[in-house]
Amino acid sequence: MTTFSFDGEEVTAEPGQSVGAALLAAGYRSWRTTRHGGAPRGLFCGIGVCFDCLVVVNGRPGLRACLTEVRDGDVVSSQEGAGRDHLAC
């Protein structure tokens, strides 16, 4: 089994599973809020096209949860908007 954390909670996954699949299997349906309006988002297309399931993995925002393979010890966290507010100017 692979173990990672999501917003501080420990989550287990099958080896080779995507972050999105693991989160869904663990009962999470959303892990991002939209840039305008803050509406919840999670898996939509599930195949890398729609960019709806963006998530922060090990500090890197904007990753597609459906295409990102989860690794043991990953620190996954919810993403607010573009996840790059520190760059705003």
């Binding site: 840039r35 904007g62 573009a82 790059r84 760059l87 705003a88 100017c89």
Partner: peptide, 9 residues
């Protein structure tokens, strides 16, 4: 690119 906050003026 992916959508970002205003990063380039």
């Amino acid at each position: 690119t992916e959508p970002l906050p205003r990063v380039i003026r």
